[in-house]
Amino acid sequence: MVRTNKKFLARLRRKRRVRKKIFGTAERPRLSVFRSAKHIYAQIINDEEGRTLVAASTLSKDLRAKVNELKGQGKVAQARLVGEYLAQMAREKGITKVCFDRAGYRYHGRVKALAEGAREGGLEF
């Protein structure tokens, strides 16, 4: 099935426009966010090598139990938890600075909560 609704295509246009300017390096990798209806995913990527350095989502094995505890509090709380966990894993690998790629999503709600959680966890944007 081909997705052709206007909202989806508009987000892809915004994503392409932003990605022209944002590029992750070894010193400052890119923190990329993907938001689905049920889950949120985040990756820290070195674009020079084309490698994902750290990844976390609401489906991560380490977070699964904590995410289930937060089910009643909503997806924003889960996104904040994913951001904190991602920052913790990044610090273990020696990553402290990242550039934030919101992938065409508005900086609002779950995307904002993930970013704030990552900042609280020690990442610098």
Rank of each mutant, 00 (worst) to 15 (best):
A115M: 05
I95N: 05
D101T: 08
Q88H: 10
R102D: 13
H108R: 15
K97S: 13
R102I: 09
A87N: 06
A90R: 07
H108Q: 15
V98S: 10
V111K: 02
K93A: 00
R102C: 04
I95M: 03
R106F: 14
K97C: 02
E116W: 03
E116R: 11
E116Q: 13
D101L: 11
A118W: 03
A90K: 05
C99L: 14
T96V: 14
E92K: 12
F100I: 13
R91I: 10
D101R: 02
Q88F: 07
I95E: 01
K93V: 07
H108K: 15
A118N: 12
V111D: 05
Q88P: 02
Y105T: 01
G94T: 11
A115W: 05
K112A: 15
Q88S: 14
A118I: 05
A90I: 03
A90S: 14
G117W: 06
E116N: 07
K112L: 08
A90P: 08
V98H: 06
F100G: 07
Q88C: 00
Q88V: 02
L114P: 03
A87Y: 07
T96H: 11
G117R: 02
C99D: 09
L114E: 06
R102L: 11
E92G: 11
G104T: 04
A103Y: 07
R102P: 08
V98L: 04
I95D: 00
G94R: 08
F100P: 07
Q88T: 08
G117D: 11
G94P: 12
E116I: 00
A90V: 09
